[in-house]
């Protein structure tokens, strides 16, 4: 397929990528600032999109501001390409850009995600766009935006560490399993969005650019390629990730994040890869059952 043909597939009622060019420029300016100050939440003029707030409008606006005719878009939700909202967002971009989409991690130039980082390591020529429900990692500790912005400005992060301390005192370990806070470039504490903490180490020194969009909260932030991302912990209670006793039922992987699936009325359960593309590829390569 040539580029001209892909563009001609776009819905003629809307500008390419839905947003007008002025708005795209505004989003890109905010993104440039975000890249320049890793982990800092940049306010931006978030627009109302035809998908609901909380359903990925931040990520959608970033993707809309970046996507061009040579791009190939992959959209995942919970690691899967076929979940309803991932389908809905992919269809939206297919309609307003007429561009190429894929379910293959390796083929994509832009990957928009909700709640997961693909298992396959990302490359420097890829961009990972996160949908962010709550960009403020301190929000649960401090409801006021005025206060949390000050806490970031003054690097007053003792309270976040207190939260981890309280978990260890009560449970013996940190009881946060997703949206586990990270320190970006040793300056700003950022929320990795509700990805499982299993994915946190992938953010560290990732070759791909990571962009985060919170539409409802009107913030973007970024982790530039090859940036240090450290999950908060204590020297004597170091950060650890989840592990499973069993491998994936379908592909046999012991290295991937697994979803629990209930298979009968008695609560019997099996575990399968959350990243469907990774799982499928492994099975095609002859792994697993």
């Amino acid at each position: 397929m040539t580029e001209a043909q892909t563009i001609s597939g776009a819905d003629p009622h809307y500008n390419y990528g839905y947003l007008d060019e002025q708005t795209k420029r505004m989003v890109r300016r905010a993104l440039l600032k975000a890249v320049a100050i890793p982990g800092y939440q940049v306010p931006f003029g978030s627009r109302e999109m035809p998908l609901a707030r909380g359903w990925g409008t931040g990520g959608i606006q970033i993707t809309a501001a970046l996507i061009g005719p040579s791009d190939c878009l992959k959209v995942i939700d919970q690691g899967a390409d076929d979940t309803t909202n991932a389908v809905s967002i992919r269809n939206f971009f297919a309609r307003v850009t007429g561009g190429r989409t894929t379910q293959k991690t390796a083929e994509a130039t832009i990957i928009q995600t909700r709640h997961r980082i693909p298992e396959k390591p990302l490359r420097a020529d890829q961009i990972l766009v996160y949908q962010v429900p709550q960009p403020e990692p301190l929000r649960k500790l401090e409801p006021s935006e005025v206060e949390t912005r000050n806490m970031h400005a003054w690097e007053e992060y003792g309270l976040m560490q207190v939260r981890l301390y309280e978990d260890i005192a009560r449970f013996g370990h940190v009881a946060t399993t997703y949206a586990y806070p990270v320190m970006v470039n040793e300056r700003y504490i950022a929320s990795p969005t509700p990805i499982p903490k299993f994915d946190n180490p992938k953010m560290d020194m990732m070759p791909a650019l990571q962009l985060f969009g919170a539409g409802r909260e009107k913030r973007v932030y970024a982790i530039p390629p090859f940036t240090r991302v450290r999950s908060l912990d204590f020297e004597d209670h170091p950060f650890t990730v989840q592990s499973w006793d069993k491998p994936c039922e379908l592909c046999g992987s012991r290295l991937s994040y697994l979803d629990e699936v209930i298979v009968d009325d008695h609560g019997a359960r099996i575990f399968v890869c959350s990243d469907t593309d990774y799982c499928e590829e492994r099975r095609q390569d002859g792994e697993g059952a």
Binding site: E156, Y157, G158, L159, Q161, V162, Y165, E166, I168, A169, D233, F234, E235, D236, H237
Partner: peptide, 24 residues
């Protein structure tokens, strides 16, 4: 005081603010 934080957490906050990262 932070009324929702344990006595140990209350005392420890300023230490953590100052960069102490050893739980013990």
């Amino acid at each position: 005081l932070r009324m929702g934080v344990s006595a140990g957490g209350n005392i420890g906050e300023r230490l953590m603010d100052a960069g102490e990262r050893n739980y013990g």
